[in-house]
């Protein structure tokens, strides 16, 4: 089994991100957020490919099928998100996915019929990368504050990025560690 993680993002202005940032800073009045970026994280599993073959397969899926991304409008990168916010402050990332897993088997069949590439499984999630001004807060305190005020929409007054009734989130390792795998 070979697993490849890839990240896609819009080439032009991501309006969902603009609105999310506006809502967080001006409606929820959260002052620490400097920048926000959104990516789709993809995880492809292949049964019988080597790592270079699997990376090449993902490139083909992205550029030739148009099933998962539109390469005219979206960039993609393997392992790490492209064009991360440039900042000296900490960046905290979360990965959001539905509580009930999505079945991608029909998509795997479609990809096989178009490209002959056999994908064992696909998973996707939305990644939000938050560039923050933490002030005096430790990373743990910052995560706690983010969970309550920005991430979990437990109430209409607090949080927006994750609807806890239907979605769940995981922290991703921060940028300093050089990877965005699940922490």
């Amino acid at each position: 089994m070979t697993t490849i993680t890839a990240f896609s993002t819009l080439i032009n202005q991501d309006l969902a991100c603009v609105s999310a940032r506006e809502a967080i800073t001006h409606i929820l009045n959260y002052p620490r957020l400097r920048q926000l970026k959104r990516y789709t994280q993809w995880e492809f599993t292949f049964g019988n490919l080597t790592l270079p073959e699997a990376e090449s397969a993902v490139t083909t899926i992205f550029t030739k099928t148009f099933f998962l991304i539109n390469p005219n409008k979206e960039n993609y990168a393997l392992r790490l998100p492209a064009n991360l916010p440039k900042s000296s402050g900490p960046q905290i990332a979360i990965s959001v996915r539905p509580k009930s897993p999505v079945n991608w088997s029909a998509m795997c069949t479609k990809i096989k019929s178009k490209t002959s590439i056999e994908v064992s499984s696909i998973a996707s999630s939305t990644v939000w990368v938050m560039d923050l001004n933490p002030g005096e807060l430790s990373e743990e305190a910052l995560r706690e504050e983010l969970t309550e005020r920005v991430i979990l929409a437990g109430s209409v007054k607090q949080g927006i990025l994750v609807n806890p009734v239907s979605e769940q989130f995981e922290w991703l390792e921060t940028r300093a560690t050089g990877t965005y795998a699940v922490a």
């Binding site: 969902a16 609105s19 999310a20 809502a23 929820l28 929409a153 209409v156 927006i160």
Partner: peptide, 14 residues
């Protein structure tokens, strides 16, 4: 709001 983030998520906080 073009269903940004989730449908209804931004309008609900206006």
């Amino acid at each position: 709001y073009q269903d940004r983030i989730r449908s209804g998520a931004i309008a609900a906080r206006l």
